[in-house]
Design a protein around this nucleic acid. Structure first.
Lengths: 178, 178
DNA sequence: GCTGTTGAGTTGAGTGTTCAACCATAGGAG
DNA sequence: CTCCTATGGTTGAACACTCAACTCAACAGC
């Protein structure tokens, strides 16, 4: 990097505002879930992804991808969720390295208990503050960034062949908010 | 909460895209700083705030506010930064409960070493992906959210009368990117 | 002077995340 | 079949953050 492309004033302000908004928002989301549902947001997301999967079951690696977790994080997290009785792990027959994670009934119940408060928080902290145009702009910017930040465009290319038999993660809208 | 105001499809997608973009972006920013400057982004922010203060010195509580830290987090963080020799703590004469945090020369040097890589990362991951209109929209949304999230508890109602004197945060631009 | 309350800041336990190292199996290439 | 690499997943140490409890000083009110 020969010479630094510093941020100009406008960019500076944009970046700091984004940083601040993001911090304040997710701090509150986190706290709400922690207080009312005794789980961090990352765990909530894991439960959501599992709840959307066929049979409420997903391979660990696939679950890691869809929940934006590293393998390690997911492994630790699922260990905790298993202790809580919300997720079960079972060995994979066709690939003996692999493992399935399955959302238990108790896990689904916990998720359904947590969802309303979480959704209300997201709505009141985010959508209630934005005009429809602002919300649309946020979506546009976010999707642009996601495309930019993922090597493989992830969104358009739904190419699937590496997965032997089972679960195809449904990437569809659902009652619970991610 | 009688009945939940669920997110519709559009909102669902917006929220998930935002969540994903935010996660991917800050994960990378974090990793870059950690790898190249051996400090987490939160610490970088603390150093930046101190570097902008007169005498590179700030009261702990003020520093906590401007760097969006809890008191506890800041206390832990400054302890670490002090070990690294980047920050010094000195007692406050006029208020013996208080403490000053001061950015040392070594701290300033560390910051100046870290800045170019960090700024380049922010530019390449964020601004390079956005059109000027998108960047403007992001700023608009972010500032709206900051106002919404700092105004007041926001929970009970939009009712304003219990708040004695809302402090207005000073929001100034500066050479280093926060 | 006392006494209770608020504010500044620290501390330690608990928890989640990261990183690097690790084990085991799968899938080639020879 | 044997080696070799890639993949799926786990583990433990290091570290950062949170929460609640705590100390000490400032500032009432009386």
């Amino acid at each position: 990097m020969a010479h630094t492309r510093w941020l100009d004033d406008e960019e500076q302000r944009t970046w700091r505002a984004f940083l601040t908004a993001q911090r304040l928002l997710f701090e509150r989301v986190e706290r709400q879930l922690q207080n009312e549902a005794r789980m961090p947001h990352g765990y909530y997301e894991i439960l959501v992804r599992l709840s959307e999967a066929p049979d409420r079951t997903l391979r660990m690696s696939r679950l890691a991808d869809t929940s934006l977790s590293s393998r390690s994080r997911l492994s630790h997290a699922v260990a905790r969720l298993e202790e809580a009785g919300w997720v079960e792990r079972t060995a994979c027959e066709t690939d003996r390295r692999g493992a399935w994670a399955r959302l238990t009934d108790a896990g689904l119940a916990a998720l359904e208990t947590a969802a309303p408060g979480h959704v209300e928080t997201v709505r009141s902290l985010l959508f209630d503050a934005l005009t429809p145009e602002q919300a649309a702009a946020l979506r546009d910017v976010s999707e642009t960034l996601v495309a930019h930040l993922t090597d493989r465009p992830v969104w358009p290319a739904g190419d699937d062949k590496a997965c032997p038999a089972p679960a195809q993660a449904g990437e569809e809208a659902c009652p619970e908010a991610g």
